[in-house]
Computed example of a mutant assay.
Amino acid sequence: MPTVHVFARDHINTDEIIPARHLTTDVESELARYAMEDYDKDFVRRVQPGDIIVAGADFGCGSSREHAVWALRGAGVSAVIAPNFARIYYRNSINNGFLALECDGIVEAFQDGDPADLNLRGGTITNTRTGQSLTFVPVPQFALDVQKAGGWLEYMKAHDQAALEAETLNAQSTEAGHGHPGQEEQHA
């Protein structure tokens, strides 16, 4: 059962997740040694594979560095759960097959070191010490598929181009000129 590591403060930025002085590599195992170093120097000694970070709102704000995701994943963190995320961090998480789950009231529901049961299919996380269960914003199937593949690049390698286009581009809102004023159909 995973252990929860609580970082309750709002606006934890990417420089606190992985300090810029350690951005000399993109190797996760190297980055992992410095994960959350400027926030909690002992974090990397306590974290175990599969553990979960619970954080305050706007987690991952600041720069757009993917290293912030890589450092946490390299340290063994399976998911970060927060009320919301900085947009770029959230997208980097999906692209790298890492779970960033949005859940109101999460910080108040856990104490550092609590055991948790994370149910992705059911969309719940339960503090098994207290029995309190919270529902998080469901993870889109596409994001779960990318996670299962190990990230966006691996996902793309596993799907042929036609399947990818049918899955991501064949939507009413993405068809060129569909119903948008000022966009006339172009003829060759």
Rank of each mutant, 00 (worst) to 15 (best):
P115Q: 01
H11K: 07
L164H: 04
G182Q: 02
A57Y: 00
V47P: 00
Q172N: 05
A176V: 11
T14I: 15
A188S: 10
T3R: 09
R65G: 15
A109T: 08
A32L: 09
G62T: 04
E184K: 09
Q183T: 08
A68F: 06
A166V: 09
H22K: 10
E30N: 02
T14P: 01
G97W: 03
P115W: 02
G56P: 01
D145L: 09
L31E: 12
E16V: 03
Q141R: 12
L134S: 07
A163Y: 07
D42N: 14
D40N: 14
P115Y: 03
T25K: 09
V77K: 04
D145W: 03
R121M: 05
D15P: 03
I88G: 06
Y90V: 00
L134M: 08
H178N: 14
S173V: 01
Q132G: 01
G76L: 06
R73T: 00
A8K: 15
E175G: 01
K157I: 14
Q111W: 01
I52N: 00
A71K: 07
S78R: 09
G177K: 03
D160M: 09
E184S: 08
V47N: 00
I94K: 13
H11M: 01
H67D: 15
A71F: 09
T14H: 05
T126V: 14
A86G: 15
V107K: 02
E185P: 04
A171S: 12
R33S: 02
G105L: 11
Q147N: 10
D58L: 03
A149R: 14
I52G: 02
R45N: 05
H67R: 07
D38C: 02
G76A: 08
K148G: 09
A79P: 06
D114M: 05
P140C: 06
I88H: 13
L164D: 06
E185D: 12
M156D: 01
A55I: 04
D112G: 03
G123R: 13
L144W: 01
P49F: 00
A176L: 09
T135H: 08
E16D: 07
S93H: 01
A68H: 03
S64F: 14
P140V: 15
A68D: 02
E165F: 14
E66C: 04
S64T: 13
D117M: 08
Q186C: 06
G60M: 05
E30Y: 05
V137D: 14
D26F: 13
V80S: 08
D112C: 09
D104R: 13
P19K: 07
L153N: 11
L153G: 02
D58A: 12
V6N: 06
V4N: 04
I88Y: 04
E108S: 15
D117L: 13
I88M: 07
H11Q: 11
G74L: 04
N119I: 12
N13L: 13
K148I: 10
R33V: 11
E175T: 14
P138V: 02
P83Y: 01
F98C: 07
S64W: 12
F85D: 02
V137I: 11
E184A: 12
A171E: 12
D160S: 10
G105H: 11
D38V: 05
I81V: 15
Q186V: 15
